[in-house]
Each structure stands twice: as C-alpha cells, then as structure tokens.
C-alpha cells in the first residue's frame, strides 16, 4: 500500500471542505441540475485520516437510482487528489421526507421542472401561474417520489414531491 497522505486534523479539515464541494457537485440522475445536497440525500460527510466517508439516505427504498448516485459520488470524490479513499454508505435512517429539500432545491424544481412541494397546511400552489386551484390526479407519478396534479387555472399538469 502506498504511503497515506500526511494526515492531521488540519489537512483533514481542508479536505473535508473539498469533499463537501465534490459531493454537492453531484446531480440527481433524474433531475439534472439539482444537487443531491439540495434534494436532502446527503446525511453526513466525514474525513478520517485522508479518507472520505459519505452517508446518504434514499428518497424511497427501492429507488432505482441508488447505485448510480453512489457511483457518481465516488467518481466526484475520487477525482480529488488528496482523498486516499471514498466510502459511500446508504444509511437506514433518518427517513427522507420532502422537507429535507433546501430552498435552492425547491426553486430549481419549481422553475425548471414545474415540480412543487406541498405546503405545511397541505395546500398546493401552481409553480407555473401561482394559482391555488391545483387538484391531485394520481397518487403515483412517473417516479415513486412524485404524484401528478392538475392546475385548472393555467391548465398544466404539474408534479408534487411527496
């Protein structure tokens, strides 16, 4: 085995910032342009003795993108010259919910994908026209994390993260 990079608290701290940035550069395979950090999939990022350890949580168990996301994280972190290794783990908890999506993530989903989140009171606002005349059409959308709704004001089908 090659000599590990000199590692002390200070260099691990610098590396940690680089690893965090690398992880944040990974986009969800089903939402190009939306970082997995903004989607709330990243639970923990640690660096121990020059090795990165990334803990992820899935939106839904059985999501078909898990292997691809983990591979993309390994590729992004592996490209850092200082990281000696990268372990990616899918954690059994906490359970993902749409509240984990950041404000930035919500903006991109609404503006680019016309996908919205339910408000705390359960209400929905159309990302296209701002109307509240949005009704659910189907509990299941194209993916397990989205349902289909219809805005009767601007007459667009929209999708809701659930």
């Amino acid at each position: 085995m090659n000599a590990a990079p000199a590692s002390d608290g200070l260099t691990d701290g610098v590396l940690l910032d680089e690893v965090r940035a690398a992880v944040a550069s990974v986009a969800d395979p089903e939402y190009p342009g939306v970082s997995i950090v903004d989607l709330g999939l990243v639970e923990s990022v640690d660096v121990i003795d020059g090795a990165a350890i990334v803990g992820l949580i899935p939106t839904f168990s059985g999501c078909p993108a898990l292997d691809m996301i983990a591979a993309d994280v390994r590729t992004a972190v592996g490209a850092l010259s200082n990281a000696s290794a990268c372990d990616v783990h899918w954690l059994p908890g906490p359970v993902w919910s749409a509240e984990r999506i950041t404000a930035n993530g919500r903006n991109i989903l609404a503006n680019d994908y016309t996908v919205v989140l339910r408000r705390k009171d359960g209400g929905l606002q159309c990302p296209v026209c701002g109307s509240h005349g949005v009704t659910r059409q189907s509990l299941a959308g194209p993916t397990r994390c989205r349902e289909i709704a219809w805005c009767s004001a601007c007459r667009n089908p929209i999708e809701v993260m659930r």
Binding site: G62, C63, P64, Q137, S138, A140, G141, P142, T143, R144, R146, I148, W150, N156, P157, E159
Partner: peptide, 21 residues
Amino acid sequence: KQIFLAKTQDEIGHAHLLYMV
C-alpha cells in the same frame, strides 16, 4: 427487476401526463 419496474412506472406516468395535456 427494480430497474424495469421503475422504467415501467416512468413510461406510464409520462403517458398519463401527456394524455392530460
């Protein structure tokens, strides 16, 4: 099987959205 399940759900969901439009 998981991949084909997800793809099936995608396509049916796409059809649903397109039929609405």
